[in-house]
Amino acid sequence: MNITQILFWLLSVMALFGALMVVVSKNPVYSVLWLIMTFFAISGHYILLNAQFLAIVNIIVYAGAIMVLFLFVIMLMNLNKETEPQRNRWLKVAGALAGGCLLLVLVAALYKSEMQGQSAEVNTGSIGLIKNLGKELFSTYVVPFEISSILFISAMVGAVMIGKKE
C-alpha cells in the first residue's frame, strides 16, 4: 500500500464521515462546518487526481464563498438546536431506507460493469493544470464562458430583487 492509496482511503473516509455528520447533526452551524470538511476532502481528491485548478476553485468557490453564504444566512436567522424542526421517527427511517435502497441498487448494477479493468490516472497527467484548461476554456468554450457571466449578473439581480423588502 503506497502513499497514494493511503491518502485515497483517508480522504474517502473523511468525505463520507463529513457527509454523514452533515445529515445527522442537530445544529445547522455544525452541519455547515462538516460540509466544509467534506469539500476539503473532495478537494484533496482533486489534488490526488492532479486536477489542481479544480481543487483550488473548489476551495475558493465552495468552501469559501458558498459556505460563508450559508453560514451567514443561518446566523442571520439565529437557527440553533432548539429551533431545529424534526421529522417524526418513521419518516426518518423511511428516508434513510430509501437512500440505502438507491445505494444498494446502484452498487449492484455497477459492481460487475465494464469499467472493472479501467483505472483513473493519479499523480500524473497534465490536463488538470491551469495552462491546458485555460487554453481550452478561452478557445473552444469561450462562448459558454461569456454566457455564464450573464448568468451570474442575472442571478445577482434576481437575488437582490427577491431579497428586497417591499
Binding site: T4, Q5, F8, S12, A15, L16, A19, L20, V22, V23, P28, S31, T38, L48, F70, V73, I74, L79, E84, P85, Q86, R87, L91, K92, A94, G95, A96, A98, G99, G100, L102, L103, L106, V107, L110, M115, Q116, Q118, S119, A120, V122
Partner: peptide, 29 residues
Amino acid sequence: MPINYYIFLSIALFCIGIAGVLTRRNAII
C-alpha cells in the same frame, strides 16, 4: 487507482445527500 473506487465513493456521497434531503425538514440543510 481503479475507477470502481471512485464510482462507489461518488454513489455513497450521492446517496447520503438523498437520505439527507428525505430526512431533514430544515430548508437550508
